[in-house]
Every structure is written in structure tokens, then in C-alpha cells.
């Protein structure tokens, strides 16, 4: 039996399943499992109903009816979630404009997505920096050298800002490359190793440079180097984990959480 539905019907079944699952307060991973299983069940029920009914719409309604009333099923699914998880995960709200702006759109090139992501970061970062300075000024004022020192580091802060913007731009394509290399049909461990090594060395170099500038260009030694090595070593791990989580989040967003449930 062919289990594939037309895109329109698939969307209709997803909306029905999402109405049941979205209000459940649980971890997204658990909700994804509920979504997939209920969708598989509803699809199978529909295909079974279609064999005994002439009208397609009747088959759809029969499949929905077999699955059960949405609020009741939501309550039963919720009852199986521990209270800790219930407290930790609040109700899933419809996606915000910011989320839509940040997530890669279907069919969009990774570079276009990187430009949008970087624009967002480049605009938000100065605002966050200004807010941080306003919060820090009272603290810095207690130290007579504080404000003067910070003002003297303007070029360093600008350099740092540009570096973060550059990393923001390179982040999405690198994460995409790592994800394809590790989870794509053809595994490319060599490419992953190169990307990881380059990211590690870049972060290490940036740490050394920032420390060098912050110390008025004294040579960096000792425990600082070990701390920087630790930060740099964590970079490939963060890159791999974030590439996977980012991909799953993007997939979930396009398949489920961006569904409009209003009717």
C-alpha cells in the first residue's frame, strides 16, 4: 500500500495532529515523537477508510474521528508527562516574527540565509552592547580608570564586533557543511576534521588577540593559554552539536511549528 499522501492532504493531517500536540507542555523531542506517531496512525487510518468509502472527504473525516477528539487526546498525552517536564516546558506559542526571520526558509540558499542572520546579529549586537555599557557604567565609575580604559579600547571593541559579525556570517554555511558531511548520504569525515581544526585555530587566535590587546600588548602566558586552548577545543563540539540541533529545529519549524492552526 502506498503510504504517501498528496501535499494538500498531508498538510491537512499535519494541522490536525498539531492541534492535538501543540498545547501539550512537554519537551520538543517528546512532542516530535507524538507528532510522528499520530501522523503515521492518521495516515494509515485514512488509507484504510479510503478503501471502503467512495468519498475522499468522508475518508478524511472518518480518520480524524477514529483518532479522537483533540482536547481529550491532548489531555491524555499531557497526563503522561512528568510534572517536572510540564513545569519546564510551557505551552508552545505560534512562532514569532523574529523566529521566522532567523530560520532558513524552504529552498533558500545558505548564503542568503547567512546574510539575513548576520544582518540581524549586526543590528542586535550594538544595541546589546549599549545596554551592557549602561549597566556597567555605575560599576566602572567606582574604578577611576574603568571608563577611561574602556574608552581606550574602542578599536579593539570595534575589531571584536567585526569578528563576531564575520563568525555570524560564516556560522550557517559551516554548520550546513558539517551537517551534510556527518549526516548526509555521503559521509565526509575529512572535511569535518578540516572545518573543526580551522574553527579551533581561529577561536584560539581571536582569544590570544583579545587578551593581547586587553593587556596593552603584553605577551600572553601561562594559565591564560590553557584557558584559551580549552575554549578553542570546545568550538568544534559546539559547531557539531549546534549544526545538528539547528537542522532539527529548522526541520521541526517548517514541518510543524510554523503550521497555522487557525481556521
Amino acid at each position: 500500500m502506498d503510504n504517501e499522501l498528496s501535499p494538500e492532504l498531508d498538510q491537512r493531517f499535519r494541522v490536525h495532529v498539531e492541534r492535538i500536540v501543540r498545547p501539550v507542555r512537554a519537551a520538543e523531542r517528546r512532542k516530535d515523537r507524538m507528532r510522528e506517531e499520530l501522523l503515521a496512525h492518521a495516515t494509515a487510518a485514512y488509507l484504510e477508510e479510503r478503501q471502503v468509502r467512495d468519498d475522499d472527504e468522508d475518508a478524511v473525516m472518518a480518520a480524524f474521528n477514529r483518532l479522537g477528539e483533540s482536547p481529550e487526546l491532548t489531555r491524555e498525552l499531557q497526563a503522561g508527562v512528568s510534572w517536572v517536564e510540564r513545569v519546564l516546558f510551557t505551552e508552545q506559542k505560534p512562532p514569532t516574527r523574529i523566529k521566522r526571520w532567523m530560520i532558513r526558509r524552504p529552498g533558500e540558499s545558505i548564503w542568503r540565509c547567512a546574510v539575513r542572520y548576520t544582518t540581524y546579529q549586526a543590528l542586535v549586537m550594538p544595541l546589546a552592547a549599549i545596554a551592557a555599557v549602561y549597566l556597567l557604567v555605575p560599576l566602572l565609575n567606582t574604578n577611576p580608570m574603568g571608563c577611561a580604559r574602556l574608552a581606550g579600547k574602542g578599536p579593539m571593541l570595534l575589531g571584536l564586533y567585526l569578528l563576531v559579525v564575520a563568525f555570524s556570517f560564516l556560522g550557517p554555511p559551516l554548520a550546513e557543511a558539517v551537517h551534510r558531511a556527518l549526516w548526509g548520504p555521503v559521509k565526509r569525515y575529512g572535511l569535518t576534521a578540516w572545518i573543526c581544526l580551522l574553527s579551533l585555530l581561529s577561536v584560539f587566535a581571536v582569544c590570544i588577540w583579545v587578551r593581547w590587546e586587553a593587556l596593552d600588548r603584553y605577551f600572553v602566558m601561562g594559565s591564560d593559554l590553557w584557558a584559551f586552548a580549552g575554549v578553542a577545543a570546545a568550538t568544534p563540539v559546539i559547531l557539531i552539536v549546534s549544526s545538528r540541533l539547528g537542522y532539527l529545529e529548522q526541520e521541526r519549524f517548517h514541518r510543524w511549528t510554523s503550521l497555522d492552526l487557525a481556521e
Binding site: I20, M34, R66, G68
Partner: peptide, 15 residues
């Protein structure tokens, strides 16, 4: 039996 109610049972038994 509403078929969707099977899944909370399966999740409970698996847990």
C-alpha cells in the same frame, strides 16, 4: 476506542 488514546498508553508502558 478512540485510536489516539493508544499512544499515551504506549508511552506510559515504555516509560
Amino acid at each position: 476506542l478512540k485510536e489516539g488514546t493508544l499512544y499515551p498508553v504506549l508511552y506510559r508502558l515504555e516509560a
